[in-house]
């Protein structure tokens, strides 16, 4: 019997869909029982987590120290909870990438990053070289298996479950050497980039923050989230949390429209799982066309307004 603990990512009492997807991955482990750990200041997120289909128990740890999640503070608590489990999973978002390696080192074990395929209880596939190669890994079954889950590879579980909520007390002393100061989010109107079914992204070619509004307009018309290339973010046309790619977000929308983006390997890493990729670029040799399902060569400044018109706006 494999016992898997999924560490929930949550904010303001709401469990992030990255958790739903990590649970979906955990349920693929043969002969598995899946619990979800919620570290929070109150019960709200635990109550939400209890609805995730397939989850047996929610392990609820409420402490004031978890009002804001700080990896250095939370890691000893997660390491303590891990004692009863064969596997510990967390989403491969900045949340999981930050905390899980710290937990692993406290437990004296390694960690797998970004698992995308489950082939057995200790057998997985994960990407390396920005997704340009896939490694097939057999992990030592004698050791506790910690892994982050590449969320673009899994569909979220539904919220039709009814898990029991267990209160857990932590005896580990939590360090106070790392303190939360503040969080700021750009005011991104429209759907969330990581879970949107449609995404319109703009690149360096937009040329200014003002022109980048063309991307916002098209996105609004399509009910899509807005994304950007690193060059567009670095140039200040778009907020940093909109970056798609190796160092930004890895997304899997049904429709991805790349406008004035050349298609660097690091950008393509972020969109490999998109179902349909549309590329608009004036250079017919741009590498983005190698991965595009539909390519259109031309000047975005004439094509975008035309597209908007034809879409009825």
């Amino acid at each position: 019997m494999n016992k898997i603990l999924v560490i929930a990512e949550h904010m303001a009492g709401v469990v992030n869909t990255s958790t739903h997807k990590s649970v979906a991955c955990a349920l693929l482990i043969p002969d598995a029982e899946v619990d979800v750990a919620v570290l929070a200041a109150d019960d709200k997120a635990a109550m939400h987590a209890a609805k995730l289909a397939g989850v047996k128990s929610v392990i609820n740890v409420t402490r004031n120290e978890f009002t804001e999640f700080v990896a250095s503070t939370a890691a000893p608590a997660i390491a303590e909870l891990a004692a009863n489990y064969t596997h510990v999973f967390a989403p491969s978002t900045t949340f999981g990438k930050d905390v899980l390696p710290r937990v692993a080192a406290l437990l004296g074990v390694g960690q797998l990053s970004d698992i995308m395929i489950v082939n057995g209880s200790h057998s997985f596939v994960r990407p390396i070289y920005a997704g340009n190669a896939l490694v097939h890994i057999d992990a030592d079954p004698a050791k506790k298996l910690l892994a982050t889950v590449r969320i673009a590879s899994f569909q979220p579980v539904t919220e039709t479950g009814d898990a029991t909520i267990e209160t857990a007390n932590i005896t580990a002393s939590l360090p106070t050497h790392t303190r939360f100061v503040e969080r700021s989010s750009a005011d991104n109107a429209g759907p969330d980039l990581q879970s949107a079914t449609r995404v319109v992204s703009g690149g360096r070619a937009l040329g200014s923050a003002e022109n980048f509004q063309l991307i916002y307009k098209l996105a609004k018309q399509l009910g899509a989230a807005v994304g950007a290339s690193r060059a567009a973010v670095d140039a200040g046309y778009a907020a940093n949390d909109l970056q798609v790619g190796q160092t930004g977000k890895i997304i899997a929308p049904d429709l991805y429209i790349a406008v004035g983006i050349s298609g660097a390997i690091q950008h393509l890493t972020g969109i490999k799982d998109a179902r349909t990729i549309v590329a608009i670029n004036k250079d017919s040799e741009a590498p983005i066309f190698e991965v595009a399902d539909i390519g259109l060569v031309g000047d975005l400044f004439t094509l975008l307004p035309e597209l908007q018109k034809q879409l009825g706006g």
Binding site: S72, T93, F95, V181, R183, S184, N240, K249
Partner: peptide, 11 residues
């Protein structure tokens, strides 16, 4: 740089 935007910590 976190998924939600920017977060500041004191260490």
């Amino acid at each position: 740089e976190v998924d939600a935007g920017l977060e500041t910590l004191e260490l």
